[in-house]
Nucleic acid binder design. Structure first.
Lengths: 155, 155
DNA sequence: TATTGTTATACTCTATAACTATA
DNA sequence: TATAGTTATAGAGTATAACAATA
């Protein structure tokens, strides 16, 4: 007697989607008290770690489209966590930095996410956790290996 | 010198999201020639493996809301892969089955997805693959362990 | 009264084209 | 002309309320 989704369970994408949905829902609950979502959290952390970053660079790092990044930054700027400063070299560009408030928020949110990660990874050995991390990285590296007609273009 | 997203990379959710995006985009390209998306593929497979299933049961199995399942089934029925039959016991319910055409489509799509999986899992040992599978399952089981104030409410 | 499938709807995420101001 | 940030918009995916037919 097998589960009704036994065939699907043999595919990486299926279990990955289900696991990610779990993580995402759970993480959003964790971040809600901070007024953050997964995206705003990620953006906040990257700006804190790379002060002076331009919006285009930030979008590139996180694989977010520029127009969508604008809204995320509006959000973070409105809550006083991030500042869009003018660049001295290029008056088109913004140099992004976190405020003191933003830094504190970032620190507290990171602590919460660490605890969240530990809870969801309960029962997984350290070795298995490293293996998971390595596997997820490898999958990202294997992307774009598709034969041909994939490179979009051929609508 | 560390990557600009080094801090984020230490969180499961981040690498999981990036890996899943890769799989999803790639998989949709793989399924496009069959006229299938990830959802329609999953639904097709589960119906084939569980003939006579009702829509509500199917929705439950795949964690899809009933109203959304209706549209997925419209799609599969329109392409002649699935039939909504009348149930003899309950005239409200539909008994779902795949047509011959649907079965052939399912077989070919599964082969394609198997090859797709193998390509994305290239460079990951069998042991690591089993470990990945187990870890993803464990994460799903650990969900809903959140303390309290999470149940929304406390705006 | 409860349940099955359905409709309508809304909200989030994501993706693209086109504008503006600078370069 | 090209680029940075922006605006508007369109398309998925997902979630909820309410209805008709049936139980």
């Amino acid at each position: 007697m097998s589960a009704p989704d036994a065939t699907l369970s043999s595919f990486m994408g299926y279990d990955m989607k289900r696991a990610f949905n779990v993580i995402q829902n759970d993480l959003n609950v964790t971040l809600q008290p901070f007024g953050l979502r997964m995206v705003t959290f990620s953006v906040l952390v990257v700006i804190r770690d790379n002060p002076g970053l331009k919006q285009t660079q930030l979008a590139e790092i996180l694989s977010i489209e520029r127009p969508n990044m604008v809204l995320v930054l509006d959000d973070l700027e409105q809550m006083g966590a991030v500042v869009r400063g003018r660049s001295p070299d290029d008056r088109r560009a913004h140099e992004l930095t976190v405020t003191l408030k933003g830094r504190r928020l970032c620190d507290r949110a990171i602590d919460a996410v660490r605890r969240h990660d530990a809870r969801l990874a309960a029962g997984i050995s350290d070795a298995a956790r490293r293996s998971l991390h390595a596997a997820l990285r490898q999958i990202q590296m294997n992307a774009g290996t598709q034969d041909d007609h994939n490179t979009v273009s051929g609508t």
